[in-house]
Design a protein around this nucleic acid. Sequence first.
DNA 1: TCGTAGATTTACCAAATGGTAAAATTTAAT
DNA 2: ATTAAATTTTACCATTTGGTAAATCTACGA
Lengths: 205, 205
Amino acid sequence: MSDGSTKKPSRIQQRNRHLILDAALEVFSRHGFRGATLDQIATQAGLSKPNILYYFGGKEDIHLTLLSQLMETWLDPLVEMNAAGDPVEEILNYVQRKLDMAQQLPRESRLFAGEILQGAPRMRPELESKLKPLFDEKCAVIQSWIQQGRLPPLDPRHLIFSIWASTQHYADFESQVSLLMNEGDDTYASAATHLNMMFRTLLQG
Amino acid sequence: MSDGSTKKPSRIQQRNRHLILDAALEVFSRHGFRGATLDQIATQAGLSKPNILYYFGGKEDIHLTLLSQLMETWLDPLVEMNAAGDPVEEILNYVQRKLDMAQQLPRESRLFAGEILQGAPRMRPELESKLKPLFDEKCAVIQSWIQQGRLPPLDPRHLIFSIWASTQHYADFESQVSLLMNEGDDTYASAATHLNMMFRTLLQG
DNA sequence: TCGTAGATTTACCAAATGGTAAAATTTAAT
DNA sequence: ATTAAATTTTACCATTTGGTAAATCTACGA
């Protein structure tokens, strides 16, 4: 009824697959693909190693499943950028959504960053098939805003890169950021203020 | 005569240590610490594995040597930021130096990024002793510029984070960037233009 | 040229790790 | 309750990998 290849995942299956993926996200995001071990994932999930391999084909399979699930969530904030809205507001809202994502899903951000850092060996196909078309589409939207005179002339691609970099930085480089920020301060709140100002002046000035 | 613990590195020693560190930089930056193997490093260096361990105490030693050497180079552009200069020019020059560095030393950038991404397990002491004091010092410089009315009010810490993030992005996420940029374009040239404009409007507007 | 310190290779080892087979246990429909 | 299917554990295995010991080779000053 659902996808034709399997009947229906039992409650145990559903629970354990989720446990494993959550544990794997924790471990992969902290240690990278090769740095992570099935034993670590098993311990984190509270299951035995062979039991994990009962639910997934192998280490690679778990990693790939995570990346695949992540892609959707990851692209969502950009999908929401609406060509019919106000350019400045749309882009500033996008910045805020990306920053929120870094704050709320830091493990996902680091998993993604680690994969890209190593040349995207396991994710390139999905980058090409999902990220690239969306990126091109939104670049075209921004370009049209510029041509309508609603934004100053700038390279949409680099604008998006700057947004990605400056927001994800707080998740990916968290260990450095927390070392350099004073503990009392709310890093994400002040980051939101700063990034809002930075991109607002860029888009309006 | 040089450092008191060793006589003098022979020509062979000098050459081979350099070969090994260069090979290790290549391998570590691409695969991370655990992802890299001594065999890979040995092959890349054109030496045998035991021969590599003749020159270094072990895998960890090689990695630590690389990170230690890198720190100096890495902080240099920020050191050059001069409190006596023009604020906007000083910061824009800093942006450009960081971008040049990403372009010319992408392996070093990725090595650094990978270490931070994993929580800086091997570099935290040096981050605390070298990066943090310099960071605090330059934040104070920027703060004084602001108090003198020579820069608009902004959080110096987040300004520096934004500069780091948006410049290093081109090295650390190179695989993604190259996938999304059209091949004919000069990525770094257009990035320089964009970042210059972005930070100029922020600092002047 | 000879001898020795320096450099390199050969042949290993122990631990870690991804993975498997099969027995044992639990679950759930009848 | 019975039984068949699903799940979990126990006991392994082969490969990879960081590292070592000792033999061998090479550079180089006396």
